[in-house]
Deep mutational scan, measured.
Amino acid sequence: MATGGRRGAAAAPLLVAVAALLLGAAGHLYPGEVCPGMDIRNNLTRLHELENCSVIEGHLQILLMFKTRPEDFRDLSFPKLIMITDYLLLFRVYGLESLKDLFPNLTVIRGSRLFFNYALVIFEMVHLKELGLYNLMNITRGSVRIEKNNELCYLATIDWSRILDSVEDNYIVLNKDDNEECGDICPGTAKGKTNCPATVINGQFVERCWTHSHCQKVCPTICKSHGCTAEGLCCHSECLGNCSQPDDPTKCVACRNFYLDGRCVETCPPPYYHFQDWRCVNFSFCQDLHHKCKNSRRQGCHQYVIHNNKCIPECPSGYTMNSSNLLCTPCLGPCPKVCHLLEGEKTIDSVTSAQELRGCTVINGSLIINIRGGNNLAAELEANLGLIEEISGYLKIRRSYALVSLSFFRKLRLIRGETLEIGNYSFYALDNQNLRQLWDWSKHNLTITQGKLFFHYNPKLCLSEIHKMEEVSGTKGRQERNDIALKTNGDQASCENELLKFSYIRTSFDKI
């Protein structure tokens, strides 16, 4: 039985969820670079991206490699990797027998973001014989899940209580170790020597080791999670996991709180800001991140802002960003909400898709409305799209047979046209069989910064309504002859009103 693990408890099935942008060198404390989270699957090609990484700022997932063999891993080693800020997950990587050479110096898994409450997941690794993470000293947050690894031993010899604050939620089941077939031998045991430290858990006094050649490092209890030197002297209180010299914040392997210019500090002093819960960055760093993602459509890219001495992905609820200094300031009234469309555009074809934009005031991208039916549609669209004030790209209304009016965009005031449909149009209306009105132009103002209007096959939309939009939106004169079809717009509506004058002759039985 794995020490510190839980057996036999019912657990939810383990679901495996399925960018080499360097964020800056980590400095003297770390020998390499800070790398983003990685999802490495199918083959070993991307694994080489770990070569210079000291910190993975995010998670590391290595999974679904069915053609790899043990010899493929023999020359692979990433000794610079010290810390993973989120979680480490391995799933069905064939041929991998140990992690001792792959990650010989991995010391800390912070667990800032977890995989279903777990910071370390080893699942269905069919050839893994031992973990071998002999320098792993601290899992700051989260638990361990090690399950269905039929060859995995050296679990009962690990004292997880020396690595985690609590072992109650560890789930370590259905491994070879369960069948008591392992016969784990710690260093020196074969020669009758006791080389590794022994600890007591559940009444068992057991030597602690990761492999037959690597003991588990056990520091004096007084050192807590700070770690200790090879001689057993406690590291500085700002260290986490390990250090090369005692009581020196510049000799830590990793930091308990924050890293700044080669030393570990309790908090980031001005003019620095907390970033990702582990390091200090200056304003320029946060500003660069903001600008890199301002026009990016890459998933996970955030326009970072500053709030409460932190550089964070977005302002919290009730705050909006001051564009001059990136500071989050309290909103006066309802907060603006910028919604970034991942692929640059979004099609609204149902109430469900409209709900995804609920509360958005600025759309960074283009909207395509293609709704053919739905219950209580006008009210639903207004509830979900009615706060949109600005669209950076274009607005396209296409084959939306259920629409009679666009009044559900009740606050839309600006279409920038930074991206144009077919390279020309910022407003595009095609084949809307029941569209009769755009907006009530006596109450609604709309500016279209650039781009043209396109109207074709809107049989109940009168040309007068379209011409009014040209005047109000500032697009009059931009359109070419064929942009607004004269014969297919309003051709099934009563669009022309003329005053009919009647004269009559009164007659009676005795007068003409």
Score class of each variant (00 low, 15 high):
166 S>R: 07
318 G>H: 05
243 C>W: 00
158 I>Y: 08
318 G>A: 07
199 T>R: 07
260 L>F: 05
296 S>F: 14
101 D>K: 06
201 I>H: 15
304 Y>L: 04
120 L>P: 00
282 N>E: 06
78 F>L: 07
163 I>N: 01
73 F>I: 14
64 L>V: 10
48 H>Y: 05
38 M>L: 07
67 K>W: 09
251 K>Y: 13
204 Q>W: 04
242 N>E: 09
116 F>W: 14
296 S>M: 10
36 P>S: 06
200 V>F: 13
44 L>R: 07
150 N>E: 05
37 G>L: 08
42 N>A: 05
51 E>C: 15
218 V>F: 11
30 Y>K: 01
280 C>L: 01
178 D>T: 09
263 R>P: 02
52 N>T: 14
210 W>C: 10
202 N>D: 09
329 T>F: 09
148 K>T: 01
212 H>A: 13
270 P>K: 05
314 E>N: 15
169 D>P: 12
302 H>E: 08
38 M>V: 08
100 K>T: 09
43 N>M: 08
228 C>A: 02
207 E>L: 12
34 V>N: 03
33 E>N: 08
335 C>W: 06
316 P>R: 09
158 I>E: 04
119 A>E: 00
263 R>W: 15
309 N>H: 10
68 T>H: 08
29 L>E: 11
197 P>E: 07
104 P>K: 02
70 P>Y: 05
297 R>C: 13
279 R>K: 07
201 I>G: 14
259 Y>M: 12
144 V>Y: 02
317 S>A: 05
113 R>A: 03
57 E>Q: 10
180 E>G: 07
176 K>D: 13
173 V>G: 03
261 D>I: 04
87 Y>G: 01
71 E>S: 09
65 M>G: 06
286 C>Q: 03
103 F>Q: 01
186 C>A: 12
106 L>G: 00
51 E>H: 13
95 G>W: 03
60 L>D: 01
149 N>G: 04
198 A>M: 05
198 A>N: 10
85 T>E: 04
328 C>Y: 04
143 S>L: 09
182 C>P: 12
255 C>L: 00
56 I>H: 00
60 L>K: 00
317 S>T: 12
80 K>F: 03
167 V>A: 10
226 H>F: 13
289 L>I: 15
335 C>Y: 05
162 R>F: 08
248 D>I: 03
60 L>M: 05
70 P>A: 09
245 Q>V: 12
175 N>H: 15
234 C>I: 03
228 C>L: 03
284 S>N: 12
245 Q>W: 09
202 N>R: 06
150 N>I: 12
238 E>Y: 04
33 E>T: 07
160 W>N: 01
81 L>T: 03
297 R>Y: 02
76 L>V: 13
127 H>L: 02
141 R>F: 09
242 N>R: 12
303 Q>K: 02
279 R>P: 00
286 C>W: 03
57 E>I: 08
301 C>L: 07
236 H>V: 02
242 N>P: 10
98 S>P: 00
193 K>R: 15
150 N>S: 10
165 D>C: 14
101 D>P: 12
191 K>Q: 05
135 N>K: 12
303 Q>V: 08
300 G>R: 10
331 C>M: 06
38 M>Y: 09
87 Y>N: 01
122 I>H: 01
190 A>M: 05
193 K>S: 05
298 R>I: 10
125 M>T: 04
283 F>Q: 06
99 L>Q: 00
237 S>L: 08
76 L>T: 02
106 L>S: 00
55 V>N: 02
258 F>E: 01
124 E>C: 04
236 H>N: 09
136 L>Q: 05
136 L>C: 03
288 D>R: 15
203 G>I: 04
96 L>A: 02
144 V>M: 11
278 W>Q: 05
176 K>T: 15
164 L>A: 09
194 T>N: 15
155 L>I: 10
97 E>F: 14
28 H>G: 00
317 S>Q: 15
265 V>P: 01
200 V>Q: 10
173 V>L: 15
307 H>Q: 07
69 R>L: 04
336 P>W: 11
157 T>Q: 13
142 G>S: 02
323 S>A: 12
285 F>C: 04
218 V>D: 08
321 M>W: 13
329 T>N: 12
38 M>W: 02
64 L>W: 01
220 P>F: 02
63 L>V: 14
243 C>L: 00
330 P>F: 12
238 E>M: 04
167 V>R: 08
164 L>S: 07
242 N>G: 07
184 D>K: 14
95 G>I: 02
257 N>M: 03
243 C>V: 00
143 S>Q: 11
299 Q>D: 09
242 N>D: 09
145 R>H: 07
303 Q>P: 13
252 C>T: 02
252 C>P: 00
276 Q>I: 07
240 L>I: 12
81 L>Q: 00
102 L>S: 01
235 C>F: 00
28 H>M: 09
44 L>C: 06
137 M>L: 09
180 E>S: 13
316 P>H: 04
114 L>M: 05
52 N>W: 02
238 E>R: 04
116 F>V: 03
223 C>H: 03
256 R>S: 07
180 E>D: 05
40 I>T: 07
109 I>C: 00
305 V>F: 09
327 L>R: 12
79 P>F: 03
151 E>R: 05
29 L>A: 12
170 N>R: 08
82 I>G: 03
282 N>W: 02
274 H>G: 15
194 T>P: 12
40 I>Q: 02
36 P>Q: 04
129 K>D: 03
212 H>P: 07
54 S>K: 02
90 L>F: 09
108 V>G: 01
322 N>M: 03
111 G>F: 00
81 L>V: 05
162 R>V: 10
187 P>G: 14
145 R>S: 11
193 K>V: 04
279 R>G: 14
94 Y>G: 10
45 T>C: 03
80 K>A: 09
305 V>R: 09
275 F>Y: 06
197 P>I: 13
263 R>Y: 07
48 H>A: 04
325 N>S: 15
100 K>R: 11
43 N>A: 07
45 T>V: 12
227 G>I: 08
186 C>Q: 02
167 V>C: 14
238 E>I: 01
111 G>A: 02
59 H>C: 11
333 G>C: 07
105 N>D: 06
195 N>R: 08
157 T>F: 05
62 I>M: 08
42 N>Y: 13
239 C>P: 00
210 W>Q: 11
185 I>R: 05
178 D>H: 14
195 N>E: 14
184 D>L: 13
36 P>N: 04
316 P>L: 03
167 V>D: 03
87 Y>S: 02
236 H>L: 01
33 E>R: 12
42 N>V: 07
275 F>H: 07
146 I>D: 00
183 G>W: 11
129 K>S: 09
210 W>P: 02
160 W>L: 06
162 R>C: 14
171 Y>A: 11
